[in-house]
Design a protein around this nucleic acid. Sequence first.
DNA 1: ATCCTCCCCTAC
DNA 2: TAAGGTAGGGGAGGAT
Length: 1096
Amino acid sequence: MPPASDSHDGGVKRPRSITPTHLEQNPVAPQTPNTLQEEEDDEEIYGAAHFGNFGEYMRRKRAKLQIQNAALAQDNDAIFKGLSIYINGWTQPSVQDLRQLIVKHGGVFQPYLDRKAIVTHVITCSLTPAKLQEFKKMKVVRPEWIIDSTTQGKLLPWQDYKYIQEDRIDGAQGKQASQTTLSAFAPKDSSKSLDVTDRNASESSELLKRGATSLNPYASDSSNPIAKRALADPEWRRAHTSAAPDFVEEYYRNSRLHYLSTWKNELRALVTEAQEQLDRNQPLAGIDTCFSSEATIAHPQKLNQRLDKEIGSSISNTNTNASSSKLLDEDTTTHRPQRVIMHCDFDCFFVSAGLLSRPHLRGKPVVVCHSQGGQGGVSSTSEIASASYAAREKGVQNGMSLQQARRLCPNVVTVPYEFELYKELSLKFYTILLTHADDLQAVSVDEALIDVSTAVKELEDKFSANESNPSDPAKVLAEKIRTQIRLATGCEISIGIADSILLARLATKHAKPAGSYHLIHSSSATEPTNEILDFLSPLDITDLPGFAYAAKNKALERFGTSNVGELRNISKERLCQVFGKSTGDTLWKFARGIDDRRLERDGGRRSVSCEINYGIRFENEEQAEKFILQMTNEVKKRLDDIHMLGGSMTLKIMKRDPSAPVEPPKFLGHGKCEVLTKQTRLLSPNGRATNDAKVLADHAWRLLKAFHIDPKELRGIGIHIHRLEHGPEKGGTTIQRTAAPGQAVLSFTKEIPAVPKHTCTPDVSMPSPKSQIPPEVMDIDDPDPKGKKPISKDTLDLPSFSQIDMSVYEALPEDLRKELDEEYMRRSASPMPGVGPSRPSTSTAVLEQKSNLKTSNMKRITHQLAPRTSGPSLSPQKSALYRMMQPKAKSVSIPDAELQLFGIDPEVFHCLPEDLQREQLVRARLAKSGELIDAPTQKKVLKPRKPTGPVSRLAPRPKAGYREPVFLRQQGKDGEKRYLTDTDDIQKVIGDWIEKYRNSAPKEKDAKYFANYLLQCADGQKAGDDGLEKVIAIMKWWMVLLRKYWGACETPEEGYDPSNTQSRQVGEAWWRVFNDVKEQLDLVVRRKFGGTISLK
DNA sequence: ATCCTCCCCTAC
DNA sequence: TAAGGTAGGGGAGGAT
Ligand SMILES: Nc1ccn([C@H]2C[C@H](O)[C@@H](COP(=O)(O)OP(=O)(O)OP(=O)(O)O)O2)c(=O)n1
Ligand SMILES: [Mg+2]
């Protein structure tokens, strides 16, 4: 069974910020003042008092907590330390109260019952039978356990409070909690447990079963009746699911995650542009030009002057004229001096933005989500994008469902998204940051890393001139920036300062909300001091950037701890062993506060993708095909936006896991799924990477069909394009982005949405009138609407047929090849002039009639080609079949290029036993010495694996007759059995294979490998005609075996047979694989020999 | 060794 | 009702 996966759901993602809950719970001042405390004191000097009392208050409390948590291990009050507690359903006392008690006394409150998170205890007042079953291996206790324990100040035995229903619960088996040190930092992001899509569903399914709850929309096993009811109405389906004609557009208009990704890209580009301007010695003008047309922001220079006046700062910004890259360039050489990195991040960004127009909600528990039903939403599965700090106090987290939030905080207020506003604020934010930064890395719409070494240095010089000022210039600058941002946007940001990215990020968590924090060594030591180590020690691995739940699980599993301080004791070798070389090394360094990464520069895009895993509910193939069309059109737009062409496509689908309900708990979500991907080379008729909508659509549709999946089972579709090449910069097909999309795009495909979904791209970033551009304007902007039409055959500039790269040609979808064939014939450009019909038709039926005629030409042409590697991915991963088919002898060592010189296909060569390899070489050398290379027939062959243009693989075509079929030729040569060279052997392999999968469907990987092997035999010049015979023999044998075992399943039964046995499903899977392979073979055979293989 | 391919993982 | 996207780092392990 192919793997199922859902990275979102399995994980424990948690906000990086410190939950204010902790603050509330730990008001006691720390015993030992340390750096943190000192910084707090500093803060007072530097005027944090400007801010609302709220931020100041919170921040101070949190800082105290931070220190306290470090000592929490010894705290007698931490009676729940090491426990991870989940509260099920309605309880008395309330969830919030219990949660507060748990957290206050050192326990971990689990908002979800996550299969990956460790839950030591479940608290409940009542349990449904289903839950009872679900929890039967866990410690299920009544709330009194918590109450009594806290009142008595010690952890009472849970057994005394075991929750009992009529059925006996064997609760003693729950996993013991790992001894993880409590972190001062809150969890990274809201956990979305459970409809886990595992890449190895079978292995972990046992665990998966464990923790579904009705309150968790990601639980894997309960159905959503509301969704079921809605979907029963066909009208509704057609309006609200992927069956809708404009679903893609509508979806993207509302997907926050889509915006997040889009913005990040845009900001990166913008920053790069601005930096280039600055590098051209146009300090401020650059910024102005860059942004003025896109958002109404004050000129930075003026802004600064104004700000200086307003905040009465004696520090003027002396950095505005600094060259952006001078210092940076120095840095790149050897060891950089001492950087000052700031990590700047809006506090609860979406909420803060939303509150700009709702000031009365300040300080209240507010969340941003789609669901807006006032006090309703008790059962809403709508996801919370951002929660205010007041809401976080109650345990509400970003990414949580609204129903979860309501449970934790019944009076939480919901606020709608305002995407345009976010982008606007972000632009102001970035503009100001650029004003101070030597370098800037766009992290996200609300977050950036800046290198402010120069500005801090200048400030420092100024201070030292003043003498009497003991201020930390970095901190002063941070506060100045915060003030500027506040005045420009009305929002609070927090800033973490340090000399590395890692420490700056950690400092930010500490600074939030509405503060700044300089994580600095007291000494001027270059490497992390004890203070830094002490800061890090209480943290959890998930507090480190780049490490989340998977890392945590590995750490817990392999080291028994996820605490940074304890992980520091693990040797680098062990870490690398568990996490891999680079990641292990990084972890080792991070645990010691070492991070020498520089800020990332935009290195140019390497892939473009488009993926929707929500609301995918097809009833038939036609809907799926229409949807694919929408997706590929979207992909095309994205390619055009960045003037790129794609050389390769991966189609990714999510398929409902057989064990998952048809309607998952999350409304229209994908639920537990298997994730499958198929990849293909993506080449247009001109042999280059492409952006052609039709080519994209054809490839995608073809890939989708190759899954042979019931469209009803689809839950997600993604199209990824890689191996990007530069396309035309302007004009032609690349206009629509700068033109208003609607009209221009409509002009060539009806399916494309008429309204731009990029409502927040810079050119339309103003919320107002501009977002709707009149159609006339768009027409003017687009000089050549036709350029976006599928390439017209009449105007297409085709190379002469002989110039066509055959590997490219062969990689085309069949119908495209046919079309191309027809075109050549029509133009009399084919090697057999004038054979074709006068006009190509798009009718499949017609094309098929003609195919024989053309394939005979194809055969002649392909025969002249050099050997080539067969299609994409002849590189099986380790698999049972693969291992079975591996040659036992090691390969004779000889460069492939030399083999090719001999006309031997390396791939085949390496499959041969050693003695045969030698023999082949001897023969080849002999033959070559007696003949001239047939130069004129040399061809360039595009090597499938090299992304960069055609790699010439000069492979002189030996004279006909010379080259005996490498494969299978030795049959009968000397009765010795050889791997993969003898029919008997292969028959045995097939037999073994089937035997191995008598009771479960064959692995996709094996099937692919086997198919490739057969194709290799039948295709190209690797085998002569007896190669084909061999293939036919193998296929026949395979068929015989399948008939023997599953003869009844040869033709899949129509309709739904409730008595569908496991055996029947396995049989059908085998036949599906068989037919799939035969189909592929037929394709090759038809091309080569003009017919299909007959297994009669 | 170094590359490539097919994934997993992470961040917002 | 709800809108679970997207790009890049990098690891495992085969190909070169
Ligand atoms: N699961 C998530 C996480 C974040 N976001 C969006 C909304 C957030 O406001 C924005 C920024 O994410 P942050 O992680 O910076 O979180 P916030 O800014 O909301 O809070 P803070 O930074 O104060 O912790 O991204 C989202 O839509 N879904
Ligand atoms: Mg933020």
